[in-house]
Amino acid sequence: MWRSAFTILALAVCIVQAANAQALGDPDKGEKLFAQCKGCHQVGQGAKDRVGPHLNFLFGRRAGAHEGYRYSKDLARAGANGLEWHADTLDIYIENPKNLVSGTRMSFRGMKDPEDRADLLAYLRKFSDNPANIPEADPTATGTDHDVDPEILAIVGDPEYGEYLSSECTTCHQADGGDSGIPSITLWPEEDFVIAMYAYKTKRRNHPVMQMIAGRLSDEEIAALAAYFGALEP
């Protein structure tokens, strides 16, 4: 069904690559590779939607259709046009998300090595029905590791102030969630937003522009931005 929505070119690409992807890789290696995804995605018991949707029961899911998560317009449209997540489509998507869904908010430059992708998919496959049910193990993903004071996380941001402050962000980060070289920051859960900004503020995340911008924002200002971007309708 979804195949009808693809161009001939995309179809040709996926036939070639399906061979790799369907020989599923090593889930233990895949678990290590999932570290690249953990900043945004959770999977396993208790997994929740964060910056990106949780990835339980991903295989067989229609793209952009997981209830409760607000997708980019492009991803929702791709799902409405019939895109479903299977080993072959996921393989293409993970290789370079924007090649498959140009307007996706998924800020990931892609995983170039086909073996790595097969390993990652083998790991993710464990959290979908058939063959694997959710294992009764500890949660495998815990969001971003952080030590931000809960009192800071509890600050309720002033979205109107956040809107004013956001104008400094939108010089580079597009308000509609578009992403071309600079990641989207639209519709992040507030907590993830605050954690990320503190990581820059305390220089544990490496980016000179972001360290400078975050470095002079107060706790209240970060909370205000989180409140604004978390609710922005793109």
């Binding site: 104008s167 939108t170 010089t171 580079c172 980060h173 597009q174 308000a175 509609d176 578009g178 992403d179 071309s180 070289g181 600079i182």
Partner: peptide
């Protein structure tokens, strides 16, 4: 360089 391309799209839509 990639970041500068993103910035161009960002500031022109701003």
């Amino acid at each position: 360089y990639q970041e500068s391309l993103g910035w161009y799209d960002g500031i022109t839509s701003d």
